[in-house]
Computed example of a mutant assay.
Amino acid sequence: MSTISEAIVKDHRELEQYYNEVINSNDHDHQQRFGNQFTWELARHSVGEELVVYPAMEKHMGSKGHDMAESDRSEHHKVKLLLKEFQNMKSSDPKYTYKIKEIWGLLSQHIKEEEQNDLPALEESLKAQPNLSESMATSFGRTKAFVPSRSHPSAGEHPPFETVMGLLTAPVDHVADIFRKFPNQTVSPNPSTK
């Protein structure tokens, strides 16, 4: 059983892998497949953090946690706006790799801050409650199975509005994913297995 930090860091490394697959290839089909995978994972990861991790920061870390969560939500919103543009692009578009690099520029800084500051502080605040971090990791994984797999910046970054919008848009996203190309797959990834 992993901690919430381990689950988040695992997602971060996967996102970096998908990003590298896009920028290090000249094959448009390969880029499209991994660009779709990048979008799929980033959209679900962001909403999972906003529904599970940031409320926990606010609950267990007081005003410091609230400030950290609000800062992270603001960063997420900027990334979601760029992801919304990217997810509608074709890999044959000359700006395709430029756009994912623009996303990664913001995202990599956010990841660094999260891994160096936010997650260690959160884990420290959770120490007093045995298994809470592991329970949050389980909840994070389950949450990602039910959230949208595309960027919807207008849904916001705060529950309950984001939760309601997610429940409305996720089924549409998941059906549309069936028609998108993903790495080594002819149908969309199964959100309940990742």
Score class of each variant (00 low, 15 high):
49 E>C: 02
50 E>V: 01
51 L>C: 01
52 V>H: 06
53 V>T: 01
53 V>E: 00
53 V>D: 07
53 V>I: 13
54 Y>F: 11
55 P>K: 00
55 P>M: 04
55 P>C: 04
56 A>G: 00
56 A>M: 08
57 M>E: 06
57 M>H: 08
57 M>Q: 05
57 M>Y: 03
58 E>W: 06
59 K>F: 06
60 H>I: 04
61 M>F: 03
61 M>I: 02
62 G>P: 00
62 G>R: 07
62 G>W: 04
63 S>A: 14
63 S>G: 11
64 K>M: 13
66 H>Q: 13
66 H>T: 15
66 H>S: 14
66 H>K: 15
67 D>S: 14
68 M>V: 08
69 A>N: 02
70 E>C: 11
71 S>Q: 15
72 D>T: 04
72 D>V: 07
72 D>M: 12
72 D>Y: 09
73 R>L: 01
73 R>G: 04
73 R>T: 03
74 S>P: 08
76 H>E: 03
76 H>C: 07
77 H>E: 08
78 K>F: 09
78 K>M: 11
79 V>N: 05
80 K>V: 04
80 K>F: 09
81 L>S: 14
82 L>M: 13
82 L>K: 12
83 L>Y: 04
84 K>R: 11
84 K>V: 08
84 K>H: 15
85 E>C: 11
85 E>F: 12
85 E>I: 13
86 F>C: 04
86 F>I: 00
87 Q>P: 01
87 Q>L: 09
88 N>Q: 13
88 N>W: 04
89 M>S: 05
89 M>H: 03
89 M>V: 13
89 M>G: 03
89 M>L: 05
90 K>Y: 12
91 S>R: 03
91 S>K: 01
91 S>P: 00
92 S>Q: 11
92 S>D: 13
92 S>F: 06
93 D>H: 10
93 D>F: 10
93 D>C: 03
94 P>M: 10
94 P>Y: 09
96 Y>H: 11
96 Y>S: 09
97 T>K: 15
97 T>W: 11
97 T>V: 13
98 Y>C: 15
